[in-house]
Each structure stands twice: as C-alpha cells, then as structure tokens.
C-alpha cells in the first residue's frame, strides 16, 4: 500500500477517534486532494504532520474542518434551477400553512439567501422557516453574516435576473467598498444550525430539502444513506433538489423519489420504486 494512502487512513481515523468527524465514507479522490491542500496551507510537511497537530493542538481541529468542507458557492447558481423551483415546487408549497425548508450543507449561505429572495418574491416567505445546516461552524458564522465580495455581485445580479427575479438584485444588499451586506430582513426566517449529514439524524419535517453539490463528495454507500435520511425527513410529497450533475442511479434509496424535473434534479418523495438501479 502507498505510504500516502496509509497516512490518509490514519488522519481520517484520528479525526474520527479524537473529534467524532467521520470522513471515512467520502469519495477518496477529492478527500485526498483536500488533505494534501491542508498540508500545504499549514506547512505540515506530510499528512502525518497534520495528524500530529490534529491530536496535540486543540485549535487545529477548526482549521482542519474548514479545509475539509467546501464553502464554494454563488447566489442563484444554475439560474434555471431556481426558475424550476418557482414554477414547479412553490405552487405546491403554497398549499401549506407553514413551510419548512432544509438547506443541507449551506456553506457560506449564498443559496439560503437566494431561496429567501425567491420565496419573498413569491409571497411565501412569511410562512416559511428555513433550517440552514452545515458541519463547519466557521461557514455557518459567515453564512449568518451575509457579507460577500462586491466583485461577485455583478455575476449574481445576472444570475438573479436569469432565475426570474422580479426586481433588481441590488435591492437586497447595501454595498460598502469591496463588500456587500445582504439585507438583514432576509434572515428573519432562517435558523442556522450545526448538523453533520454523516453522523446526525433527522431533525425536522421538511417540505423541501435543498442539498446541491454536497453528495458528490460522498461514496455510493454514504450517498444512499443520506438520501434515506432525506426521504425520512420529508413529508409525503415533499421535494428534494440536488446539484444538476448529481447521479442517484446507483442508490437503492432513490427508489423513494419520483422525478419532477430530471434536468434540474428536482424529485418528490414517494416513489413507485420503479427506478432501475445502475451498475
């Protein structure tokens, strides 16, 4: 066995035994790259060097968790997805007196606020509660702040309009120097909570779960288990939205979902069980 692969296993085991974070069922190629990146960022020399710091340096865990999570996102990423949510999902959500949405893996919150804006414009936001979760506390704190770089705002304005936004994206933030700060009002129905999809259980009864580009980092087994968790967290007929390039054809649990919009990866809980399993 390759020395580096041994080091990775030991690092992952240390994360688990010392701190309770379980990365053992992550897709190996990306995990390896992130761990190698952590070595460079923290000048640890080797992965074993990282493991030593993880075991003996109290403050290092936070840095390791930040390095191993993916806080990369943008507002209204894949605008057609938001249009599809508005056209196909919101009309159903409108039939509920109270709407629970779970944003699983919210990273820096761009998607949470995108959703809040769409719900506001659809007149649904005041009966909605969004539970935004992530296992990375630093990302959750940044998400709650809602402060982003001004240079991103131009792309996001374009995304917002393509997503079918009714006003101007700039109505929702104030700009100061190189930063924009999103309107605090967008936060009024959002609860940010630490939740780890790998180790934590169902915690709400949701009408819609958004989890885009999170499961791509999971092995087939972990993807399947998480889809099962989503199925158990959704009301009957509740919706699930994944990233537009995600593939659930290898997951037995996917039989619990029906396609609503295959291209946009929007599904509804309560399947016929007819989905064929890929090999």
């Amino acid at each position: 066995m390759d020395v580096e692969d041994i080091e990775i296993q030991l690092f992952v085991r240390a994360m688990q035994l010392r701190h309770g974070y379980d990365f053992s069922d992550y897709a190996p190629a990306s995990l390896k790259r992130r761990i190698q990146q952590l070595v460079r960022t923290h000048d640890a020399g080797t992965i074993s060097g990282l493991t030593t710091r993880l075991l003996h340096d109290q403050d290092f865990l936070r840095k390791a968790v930040e390095g191993l999570s993916v806080p990369v996102s943008e507002m209204f990423r894949d605008p057609p997805v938001f249009r599809a949510l508005r056209d196909k999902v919101f009309p159903v959500l409108a039939s509920y007196a109270e709407i629970n949405i779970w944003q699983a893996g919210c990273a820096h919150g761009q998607e949470v606020y995108s959703l809040a804006i769409m719900l506001e414009e659809a007149g649904l936001y005041d009966r909605t509660r969004i539970y935004a979760t992530d296992f990375n506390d630093a990302a959750l704190a940044a998400a709650a702040e809602g402060i982003y770089a001004t240079r991103d705002a131009r792309d996001w304005s374009r995304n917002y309009l393509e997503a079918g936004g009714k006003h101007s994206f700039s109505d929702y933030y104030s700009a100061r120097y190189e930063f924009i700060k999103l309107d605090r009002r967008l936060r009024r129905h959002v609860t940010f909570i630490n939740h780890n999809l790998v180790t934590d259980k169902v915690f709400c009864e949701a009408h819609l779960i958004l989890c885009r580009n999170v499961l791509i980092y999971f092995s087939n087994a972990l993807q399947d288990r998480t889809l099962g968790l989503f199925r158990d967290s959704l009301v009957r007929g509740g919706f699930l939205c994944l990233g537009t390039r995600e593939n659930i054809d290898f997951s037995p649990a996917a039989a619990g979902f029906t396609d609503i919009d295959q291209a946009m990866r929007i599904y509804q809980a309560g399947g016929s069980g007819a989905r064929p399993l890929a090999r």
């Binding site: 990306s30 790259r33 993916v70 791509i216």
Partner: peptide, 15 residues
C-alpha cells in the same frame, strides 16, 4: 472538476 477514482469511476467536485 472531473476526477477519476481508483476504481476507474468518475467523481465531481466544486472545490
């Protein structure tokens, strides 16, 4: 990003 896993299957990342 498109990655190849050791089992010669594809995975994706938005890192």
């Amino acid at each position: 990003h498109l990655l190849v896993e050791d089992n010669f299957r594809f995975s994706l990342s938005v890192d």
